[in-house]
Amino acid sequence: MTKIDPSLYLSNQQNQNVPSPELGKDEFLKILMTQLQNQDPTNPMDDREFISQMATFSSLEQMMNMTQSIDTLVQSQLVSPVIKYSHMIGKEVTYQAYDEESGEKTSIETGTVVAVSQKDGWAILELENGEKVYADAILKVNDPSAAADEEDGNADPDSTEGSE
């Protein structure tokens, strides 16, 4: 017969309460209840002070809920491939084209991104020419508006050449 190691018994486990550096709503309520239970009956807590503490508790709870909502929003945006690649709209991309029937590489082509979508968690760039290209298949990204600004001499708005 096998024997159970006595160190694994729940009664032998140390029950340590690790203090948290943050004061949450549960701790705030405990402090408030202790304060109410231990107040002097001949000199009860001032109504304004009690209302102030309840307002503080309410504000604390709302801030905690807002923080959680913002964290959820940020995490969802970091995960979304559409948001991650939305800055590519208007950019000129170079990509490897494939023959749809054979699946073989045909040529390297260029197109302007007009939309971003996703399929199965992958970002798909939709191009002006109707092609749809996975974002990880892009070989080069070019900003045509930056190239036009350089040709017009507007690349550096602080430049003083020709203004004298």
Rank of each mutant, 00 (worst) to 15 (best):
P81T: 01
L10G: 14
I124W: 08
L23M: 14
S7E: 14
P44G: 05
G153K: 15
K3Y: 15
L36F: 11
I89L: 01
D143G: 01
M66N: 15
D46H: 01
D40V: 01
E109F: 04
D26H: 08
I83A: 07
G121T: 11
Q39V: 04
N17I: 13
N38T: 14
N12I: 04
Y9L: 15
T34A: 11
Q53L: 12
S59Q: 13
D26A: 12
Q77N: 11
N12W: 03
P41M: 03
W122L: 14
N17A: 08
V141M: 12
L127V: 07
L125P: 02
M45Q: 04
Q16T: 04
D46T: 00
L60I: 08
K91M: 08
L32S: 02
A137V: 03
E92L: 10
L73P: 05
D149Y: 08
E61N: 14
E100H: 07
V82H: 06
S76A: 13
F50T: 00
L60A: 14
G90F: 05
P6L: 09
Q14A: 08
E92V: 00
N12H: 12
M63D: 14
Q13A: 07
P44F: 00
L23F: 10
D71R: 09
T112S: 06
G111D: 07
T67F: 07
T72Q: 09
L8H: 13
S80W: 04
M64N: 14
Q118P: 00
P21G: 09
H87N: 05
G153M: 14
K84P: 05
M64G: 10
F28Q: 07
G130W: 05
Q118D: 15
S7I: 08
M33D: 15
M33P: 02
V116K: 09
S80T: 11
V114M: 01
N65K: 06
A147C: 12
S58A: 10
L127I: 12
T56E: 15
G153R: 11
A147H: 04
D143R: 02
N17G: 10
N65I: 07
L60E: 13
Q14S: 06
P19V: 02
Y85P: 00
D71A: 11
E92D: 03
P41W: 06
G153W: 12
S76E: 13
